[in-house]
Amino acid sequence: MRIAFLGTPDFAVAALDALVAAGHEIACVYSQPPAPRGRGQALKPSPVHAYAEERGIPVRTPVSMRAPEEIEAFAALNLDAGVVVAFGQILPAAVLDAPRLGCFNLHASLLPRWRGAAPIQRAIMAGDKVTGVEVMQMTEGLDEGPVLASETVRIDTLETAGTLHDRLAQVGAALLARTMAEVETSGVRATPQASEGETYAKKIRPKEARIRWDRTAEEIDRKIRGLSPFPGAWFELTTAKGPVRVKALLSRLEDGDGAPGQVLDDGLLVACGEGAVRLLRVQREGKGPQDADVFLRGSPVAAGTALA
């Protein structure tokens, strides 16, 4: 089919690659405009933009798909279908209706649970045991369209947003390729989403990242894993040179009791409002990620230390 692909982050690259490998004609790739990245804050294209450029696929980076000139340009592509994967903009009806078969979206949750911007992080932070990926026919509502295909993925006890992201990207890419092949050849019956169980995965806010040790160990463990590797749940460690920020990137639940934030042994077992968490991987401000044992060799944290 002749397809326009709309996507921005790493998660969407696997899906675009699967469509290219399946032999579809990618008439144009749409992605968010280049943004400042890295220490130098130089403007860099998104992962999807970079992938397309390397393969000679035309790229457009509109600030808004609602602009009349962008709607006109999209319609002029004479598409069979539009495919959207984490694009970052809500599309108007004029764009959704332009392709012959409409537009399709790959979403990283089992809808209607976790509609919205951060379904992977929110699923872990909520303590969900399973999640998945779904392909839906797009409507004007946010992630409200009927579902064409889905696949369930179990969330492991040491799962982070990063590891779950990578697994869902691969599972989703394969599901999308299979579904679009069915759309092309025989059509797929779409099933309306359930009317109950709707939740929204709000964008992660910076103020959410600080660890509050008076919360339960389960809540803290889920936050640590759900915000890893980015933006990273963090706490303050007092050193001889003053407080430093440390990100907790991986943890597990363990038995322990003490004042919230108190380190209970020499291996970063930390008391919470209820229970305790063992920090397994951390990142000191200005340094790279380290396993806890490596971190402790350079920055010992003795039992009894109070984390803030």
Rank of each mutant, 00 (worst) to 15 (best):
R210G: 14
T163E: 08
L110P: 05
K223V: 04
A233K: 10
G172W: 03
Q121H: 14
M136A: 10
T131D: 05
L175R: 00
T160W: 06
Q193N: 05
L250V: 06
P112S: 04
D143P: 04
V183T: 02
K202H: 15
I220Y: 06
T179I: 06
W114S: 01
L249S: 08
L142G: 00
R210K: 15
K203D: 02
T238V: 14
I204Q: 03
G197E: 08
T152I: 15
T163F: 08
Q121Y: 02
K129M: 13
I155M: 06
I155C: 09
E159R: 03
R115P: 04
G232A: 15
S186K: 11
A177E: 05
L111S: 04
E218K: 14
L175C: 08
A233L: 11
A177C: 05
Q137M: 03
T152R: 14
P119D: 05
R189S: 07
I224Q: 09
I220D: 08
R178G: 04
L250D: 13
E144P: 00
L148Q: 03
A161D: 05
V244A: 07
S186T: 14
M136Y: 01
A209E: 04
R115D: 01
L111G: 06
R154V: 15
R189F: 01
D214T: 14
G172N: 07
T157E: 15
S186G: 13
R245C: 03
T163V: 10
V244Y: 04
E184R: 15
E182K: 12
P206F: 07
G145L: 01
D166K: 13
M180L: 15
A194W: 02
R205M: 13
V246A: 12
G242H: 08
K247S: 12
T157G: 00
K203V: 09
E208S: 11
D221Y: 01
D221T: 05
E198Q: 12
G197M: 10
R167I: 07
T131I: 04
E219D: 14
P112W: 04
T199E: 11
G232D: 10
E184D: 14
M125L: 12
I204S: 06
V188E: 02
S195W: 02
A149G: 02
K207A: 12
G226R: 10
P231S: 09
R225A: 08
E159H: 05
S150K: 14
T191G: 00
L250Y: 02
G127D: 10
R215D: 14
R122Q: 06
R122S: 07
Y200W: 09
E144R: 05
V171E: 08
L227W: 03
A149E: 06
H165R: 11
E140Y: 01
K129R: 15
G232H: 10
L111M: 06
Y200N: 03
T157D: 15
I211C: 12
V183A: 04
G226W: 04
T238H: 12
G141N: 03
G145D: 01
R215N: 12
V188N: 01
G141M: 02
K129P: 01
L175T: 06
T157V: 14
L168D: 02
M125T: 02
